[in-house]
């Protein structure tokens, strides 16, 4: 029996009459790469915010790393990492300043920051760039660095919100190598993406349509279930019936 790190039970979020997230229930195991897909406006972002402890559910429960989302939001924050396409690092700070800052806010000691920071820089091959401003790095490097910083404090779960948007295909694959490595270390990866080939890299994926989870399984089983050749077709079949946009 594998350890379960994310568990939601009929988790819902309402904004007035609008039900953004409608009773979603699923479990994610430790070390799993869980793809969280859905058309724009299906409720992905709202669901992810609740799981990160940034938004209070209207009803239902969710446990992250053994903590209740709306009662123990502070403990949850200590156990998760977060990275999004929009906000990643401070562009006007150098690489090493960013590493120290983010490691610092997660309470790493100075020695840990130094050791882990050096290991991170070496792994990414950024030794010559530590004193450069993050803003001057190419996007692909920024995203890789941003991911590494998000897992520096060894969280149990890391949430990635469209981490590879707009990144070139070579860098995207290097990014996924980082994800695989983190997953092999036992870090659970919760990732959203618009690239359907990336959905294939996930162990399991869920597809949200109109606030509900319309499908949840491994990519190969989903393709069999929907008699589709690619994940793209699976997604298209499900999302085409969606009633709402964002």
């Amino acid at each position: 029996m594998k350890e379960i790190v994310i568990k939601t039970d009929r988790l819902s979020k309402r904004f007035g009459d609008f039900i953004a997230v409608n009773e979603i229930s699923f479990e994610v195991q430790k070390g799993e790469i869980f793809g969280f897909l859905g058309a724009n406006g299906a409720g992905k972002t709202t669901a992810m915010r609740m799981l990160c402890g940034l938004s209070i559910p209207s009803s239902g429960t969710a446990e992250i790393a053994g903590f209740e989302v709306y009662k123990q939001a502070e403990q949850i924050k200590r156990n998760i990492g977060y990275m999004s396409q929009k906000f990643s690092l401070y562009e006007d700070l150098t690489v090493s300043e960013n590493i120290s800052f983010f490691a610092g806010i997660y309470g790493l000691t100075n020695r840990e920051i130094k050791e882990k920071g050096e290991a991170l820089v070496e792994q990414l091959g950024l030794e010559k760039e530590t004193k450069k401003l993050v803003g001057s790095l190419p996007l692909g490097w920024k995203q890789k660095l941003s991911f590494s910083v998000a897992v520096l404090h060894e969280p149990k779960i890391v949430f990635l919100d469209e981490p590879t948007g707009g990144v070139d295909p070579v860098t995207r694959r290097q990014f996924w190598d980082l994800i695989y490595e983190a997953s092999a270390k036992g870090i659970t990866i919760f990732v959203t993406t618009h690239y359907m080939d990336e959905a294939e890299y996930c162990d399991r994926i869920s597809i949200m349509v109109d606030g509900r989870i319309a499908a949840l399984d491994s990519p190969s089983k989903l393709k069999t279930q929907f008699k589709a050749g690619t994940m793209d077709e699976v997604f298209y079949q499900l999302a085409r019936g969606a009633k709402r946009g964002d």
Binding site: G165, H194, Y236
Partner: peptide
């Protein structure tokens, strides 16, 4: 089509 879901892209 950047940031647009696959259905809208099509």
């Amino acid at each position: 089509t950047t940031g647009v879901d696959p259905v809208s892209r099509k």
